[in-house]
Computed example of a mutant assay.
Amino acid sequence: MKNKLRFILPRLIALTAIAGLATLIIGTIFKLLLFGTVLFGIGSFAAAKMRRRDRHSLKMDKATVYPNVQRHYNTVVAIVPLKGQQRAKKATIVPVY
């Protein structure tokens, strides 16, 4: 029995040390990932706040954009067609039932 214990005990101690070291490394990796996720969340929140502040300062949130209307100092100058008419249409009679 003493010989078996002398044979198994060093291997068991080495296996325990290796398992503890692996657990320490894996725990450190997950803590770094968690820390990075928290930092990314804080950075995204701060960037969104700054973007929102910039939009409010430029008053771009309330202005609607129409592609065929040219604006000059918040007044409508002209309505420009998106696609020009190819040919003149002939007058037709449309029956109404």
Rank of each mutant, 00 (worst) to 15 (best):
R51Y: 09
F30I: 12
M1T: 11
T64R: 13
A63P: 01
A48V: 08
D61K: 04
A88Q: 12
M1V: 13
R87V: 02
G20E: 01
I13P: 01
N68H: 13
A78F: 04
K83W: 02
I8F: 10
G84T: 02
R53I: 13
T64V: 10
R53N: 11
T92R: 13
I93P: 01
K62W: 13
P81D: 00
H72G: 00
V65W: 02
G36W: 09
A88V: 10
V69C: 00
L58A: 15
I79L: 06
I25H: 02
M1W: 09
Y73E: 15
V80S: 03
R11E: 04
V94S: 03
R55V: 08
Y73C: 08
G41V: 02
L5R: 15
Q85N: 13
I13M: 06
K59C: 01
Y73G: 06
I29V: 14
L15I: 12
T92C: 05
V96D: 07
K4P: 00
K31L: 08
G41E: 05
A63V: 11
L21V: 14
K89P: 00
I79R: 11
H72L: 11
L12G: 01
L24W: 14
V69S: 00
R6V: 06
R11N: 12
F7D: 07
A63T: 12
H72M: 07
Q70A: 13
L32K: 09
P95A: 05
K83V: 14
L9F: 15
Y66H: 13
F30P: 01
Y66T: 11
V38A: 05
V65Y: 07
K4N: 03
Q70H: 12
L34T: 04
G36L: 00
A47F: 07
F45C: 10
L5M: 11
N3V: 02
V65L: 15
D61T: 09
I25F: 08
I93M: 11
L15F: 13
G20R: 01
D61V: 02
S44Q: 07
R55M: 15
L5H: 11
L82S: 05
Q86R: 05
N68Y: 12
M1F: 09
K62V: 14
L9P: 00
G36R: 03
A88T: 12
G36I: 01
A22W: 04
T16N: 05
A47I: 12
M60C: 08
K89M: 02
L15D: 04
G41Y: 01
T37D: 07
G27F: 00
Q86L: 14
T64P: 03
Y66A: 04
H56Q: 15
A47Q: 11
R11V: 04
L82C: 02
A48T: 13
N68W: 05
M60Q: 14
A14M: 10
A17N: 06
L34E: 14
R55W: 09
V69Q: 00
I26K: 07
K31P: 00
A91Y: 03
L24N: 13
G84H: 06
S57F: 14
Y66D: 07
R71V: 15
Y73N: 13
M1G: 09
T75P: 00
